[in-house]
């Protein structure tokens, strides 16, 4: 983050939309390169950027991977309001502003030699995907790899091709569930936590990474603890309002932490006590 520090940290830099990938009805992925087409810098899986739509505003979005063809950053976004709507309107070749990458990432090195459990809810699969890419690139260095993924409906499930690849080619135990589905859906219906008992991993040698809505993460942690994974092997990615991403604006405070710089990825036991307090 050296380079960010030296310049005006609040000034977005221009990035080009190299491609737009449609994922689902309301979710899309922007492939971003430098304005001249150059591949952007290294990032740690789990980090995020502040994306700026000209004249509209700026929002935090996690990096969801790197394009193999252009080398560009991938950012998978669900349209929920003003800025994400404006980003949804971006076309190939368009320019947006970007600051980042910011924050902490998933400690994948800690999982090496161990089993890994990924638990994702909804758009939460996007920030986990680059960590899965790392696992994929050195699969033999990990034991069992489990991906448990829940979404609202079958139509809102993300990254189907990749999930299939992880399952078929990389020996990942992939389990998917949805909250509600029509009759044609032959797979699980229900909460993502119900999938835990149907997978195999060694709880004494497992690291878990969880990303999704806060309630989903609470229940997931409880379930993983139940299955024997210690609290200090569980990591979650937190979300709060963010106006700066550099520790100036105060908006992202969560207990004594600033999610933009101490997070978004936290070791569960370090923030447990704050998660227990309503409206903190």
């Amino acid at each position: 983050m050296e380079s960010v520090q030296r310049q005006n940290v609040m000034l977005p830099s221009p990035y080009r939309v190299h491609r737009v990938h449609r994922e689902t009805e309301d979710t899309f992925t922007l492939e971003l390169t430098g304005k001249d087409g150059a591949a952007p810098s290294e990032f740690i899986p789990g980090q995020f950027n502040m994306l700026y739509a000209f004249g509209i505003g700026e929002v935090p979005i996690s990096i969801s991977g790197r394009s193999e063809s252009s080398g560009g950053w991938l950012q998978t976004i669900r349209e929920v309001g003003t800025v994400t709507r404006a980003l949804h309107r971006m076309k190939r070749g368009g320019v947006l502003g970007l600051r980042g990458p910011f924050g902490t990432g998933w400690p994948i090195e800690e999982a090496q030699g161990n089993d890994i459990v990924f638990m994702a809810g909804g758009i939460g699969l996007a920030p986990l995907r680059p960590a899965l890419h790392v696992v994929q690139s050195k699969r033999d260095q990990f034991g069992e790899v489990v991906l448990l993924y829940g979404a609202r409906t079958p139509e809102s499930l993300l990254f189907e091709k990749e999930r299939e690849l992880w399952r078929a080619k990389f020996g990942v135990q992939v389990k998917v569930t949805v909250d509600a589905a029509g009759r044609e859906w032959k797979r699980n219906v229900g909460v993502v936590t119900s999938l835990v008992e149907r997978t195999s991993f060694d709880p004494d040698h497992t690291v878990a990474f969880i990303c999704g809505p806060e309630v989903m993460m609470r229940f997931s942690v409880a379930e993983l603890k139940q299955s024997g994974i210690p609290e200090d092997k569980i990591y979650i990615s937190m979300e709060r309002n963010m106006k700066c991403a550099v520790g100036f604006c105060g908006h992202c405070q969560f207990g004594p932490t600033f999610i933009c710089k101490d997070g978004p990825v936290f070791r569960y036991d370090r923030i447990r006590r704050f998660l227990a307090v309503r409206e903190i």
């Binding site: 609040m10 004249g55 509209i56 505003g57 700026e58 106006k243 700066c244 100036f248 604006c249 105060g250 908006h251």
Partner: peptide, 10 residues
């Protein structure tokens, strides 16, 4: 107290 927000005017 140092908290701030940002506002875009176009």
């Amino acid at each position: 107290c140092f908290c701030s927000t940002v506002e875009d005017t176009t």
